[in-house]
Amino acid sequence: MIKLQDVYKEYTIGDSLLEILQNINLEIKKGEFISIIGPSGSGKSTLMYMMGLLDIPTKGKVLMNDVDTSKLSDEKLSRLRNEKIGFVFQQFNLINKFTVLENILLPTLYNPHTLDYDPQIKAITLLKRFGLDHRTHSYPNKISGGEQQRAAIARALILEPEIIFADEPTGNLDTKTGETILSLLEDLNKKEKITIVIVTHEAHIAEKTKRSISIQDGKIIK
C-alpha cells in the first residue's frame, strides 16, 4: 500500500548538507505488522513521517496505493492523512484543552464527507473498548500515560484508517502499560486487518512484529 522509491531526505544547515535518509527503497503491503528499528538519530522517525505524508522527500517518490504523492496538493495530502492514515506518538499528542472525546473526534472535523456511521457513537464504542468510558469528558493532562495513549489510538481509529504509524508508542510508558498498548496494536492488525508500522529503538518491541526493517545513518541495513 505504501512504496518508497529512491527516497532521499536532505537538509542544509549553514554550509553543511545533512543527509537524513539515503536511497530508501521500501514497500509496505496491506495488512502488514511491521517495525522500523534503529538508534536515535538514525532517520527512522523521518522515514515514518515521510510514509505518513507529513513530510516530503528531497528526491525520490512516495507512492500510496500506487499514486505518486509528490504531485498531490496540500489539500489532497491532508485528505489522505485524514482518511487513510492514523498516527500514534510517543508523546501521545492529545490537545489538552479538549476533552478525551473531543480529541478522538478531532479528525472527523476535517473530513468533508458524510460518514456512514455516527462518529460520536463510534468514539464512545472505542472508549468502551479501550476501557476509557469513565474518561470520556476528562482532559488529557488529568489522566495517566497509558490512558492517554489509548485515547490517541482511539483518535487514530475514528475514521477507520488503512494504516497506523506508531512512533515509539511505548516510549513514555512503563513496561506493563507498554505491553498492553503493543498488544492493542497487534489486535488491531489481526482482527481489523489494519496495517501497523511501529517505529522503535527497542529490539524486544521489534521482535513482536512480523517484519522488521533496520535503519542506521539514514540507510536501510536489513
Binding site: 491532508s78 490537545i95 473530513n111
Partner: peptide, 16 residues
C-alpha cells in the same frame, strides 16, 4: 505550534 502539528497530522489542511 504543537497543536497545529497535531491538527495537520489528523488531516487539517493549510486552509483549515
Amino acid at each position: 505550534t504543537k497543536e497545529i502539528g497535531i491538527r495537520r497530522a489528523v488531516g487539517a489542511t493549510r486552509n483549515n
